[in-house]
Design a protein around this nucleic acid. Structure first.
Lengths: 97, 97
DNA sequence: ATTTTAACTTTGTAATACAAAGCACTTTTA
DNA sequence: TAAAAGTGCTTTGTATTACAAAGTTAAAAT
């Protein structure tokens, strides 16, 4: 017997990861520091949640130099977008009874 | 600096607790076994999540006998309803950018 | 020369989630 | 009438997580 919460994706259960995905769905590319500010989390904490999403291949991490400064940006992958949308569908279905 | 996820309620982060609240928002009163079935969780696990919500005073537990059988039902409290609605508002705000 | 910025990684701790087993009691079934 | 099953937990144990804090590497700015 399949429960009504079965389609919620564990990767998006945590609110920081939920926040990351939400930001990445409406912003094509977001920098580390911008994301940190938006979510108001520590750098270590952000890095670890990003890396969890990266491991699932939901987020793509791009490292480059802008001028001489290191610069890290994040993008959602196609897979991540799909997974997140499915999660939101499941959420919606759950919430509207 | 307040983050965009700051208004999400920690009590509702877990999907089982999210499920419980969703069920209780549309069903005035729900029995233990019905809830267990709906969510497809073990009895111990359900009990522990219920007790977490009870501790926050978001859920009210009523124990009685129906005939000779023990019967436990759950109801959302006023406080729980308010808190959950605020959580959903925060979620919505987060998700629509 | 020292501090700051960037972007982590490591370490340690506390909280959580959950399965599994145990429990007290009653009712149903063989 | 003895055994099995149901109700609704509590306890125990383990594994996973979240997070803060501190450490790290390397360049940039003062």
């Amino acid at each position: 017997m399949k429960g009504i919460i079965a389609h919620l994706n564990k990767a998006f259960e945590n609110r920081i990861r939920l926040g990351i995905m939400s930001v990445l769905l409406v912003n094509d590319e977001v920098e580390f520091n911008r994301m940190k500010e938006l979510l108001d989390v520590s750098d270590g904490n952000l890095a670890s949640h990003i890396s969890a999403l990266e491991k699932e291949e939901y987020v793509l991490v791009k490292k480059q130099f802008v001028g001489k400064k290191p610069n890290t940006t994040y993008k959602v992958t196609k897979l991540g977008k799909k997974a997140f949308e499915e999660h939101l569908n499941a959420l919606e279905k759950l919430l509207k009874g």
